Amino acid sequence: MDIQHVIGELMTLIIMAFALGLDAFSISLGMGMISMRLRQMFYIGIVIGIFHVIMPLLGMAIGRFLSEQFGSISTIAGGLLLLGLGFHIIYSSLFGEEDSKIAPTGFGLILFSLSVSLDSFSVGLSLGIYGARTVATVVIFGAVSMFLTWAGLLLGNHVKTWLGTYGEVLGGSILVGFGLKLLFPF
């Protein structure tokens, strides 16, 4: 495998991680307006990063199993899954109801982390079908989501949530693009 292929794959993973992390970022913008200490913001970012490691890892394991069992049909299913997820994110961010506020501590933090990392499970499933590098994927997904969460929390302390919906639409659009890439490789 040549270096250009590896760099291309890593760049793809970083872009996907950024798209998935925008959900955590945009929600963190709103959460950042809640009065909280830097230590709590740090902890929230760590927990969300951990969930963005666990969820795609589970998805990739299931995706690899499906790929071995069903071959090229699973690649089409992975592409369709990314398309569906991307369109769902776009639709819910434009026309969905506002999420109810959950306190970012204890069980509320676990629930919040799980909700913003569910899309990582779906993408992990698609990447497992595609055969992406496991360690690189989960490390990149976890690190990017952690930093985007911190950025959202800190930025939320300084600005209003005007970027929230547009950030989610951008993230959904990127997932749609990767779904199309799986379905129509070029």
Results as ranks from 00 to 15, higher is better:
Phe107Gln: 11
Ile34Asn: 04
Gly79Ala: 14
Ile73Met: 08
His5Ile: 14
Met33Trp: 00
Gly49His: 05
Ala17His: 04
Gly49Ala: 06
Gly30Ile: 00
Trp162Cys: 06
Ile140Ala: 06
Tyr91Met: 10
Tyr166Arg: 11
Phe51Gly: 07
Gly63Ala: 00
Gly86Lys: 00
Val47Pro: 02
Arg37His: 13
Phe70Leu: 10
Gly96Arg: 08
Pro56Ser: 00
Gly108Leu: 06
Trp162His: 06
Ile129Gly: 01
Arg39Leu: 12
Leu85Phe: 08
Leu80Asn: 11
Val53Ile: 14
Gly86Cys: 09
Phe25Glu: 09
Gly128Trp: 15
Gly177Gln: 04
Leu153His: 00
Gly171Phe: 02
Val53Arg: 10
Glu97Leu: 10
Tyr130Lys: 15
Asp23Arg: 01
Met146Lys: 09
Pro56Cys: 00
Ile110Ser: 09
Asp99Gly: 10
Leu127Pro: 05
Leu182His: 04
Glu9His: 12
Val53Thr: 10
Ile90Pro: 03
Gly30Tyr: 01
Met16Pro: 03
Val176Pro: 06
Phe87Lys: 01
Met31Leu: 15
Met31His: 09
Ala136Gln: 13
Ser173Glu: 08
Phe112Arg: 07
Tyr166Ile: 06
Leu109His: 07
Gly172Asn: 01
Lys160Gln: 11
Ser26Ile: 09
Ile48Cys: 03
Leu66Cys: 02
Phe65Lys: 07
Asn157Met: 14
Ile62Pro: 14
His5Tyr: 13
Ser92Asp: 13
Thr105Pro: 09
Ile73Ser: 13
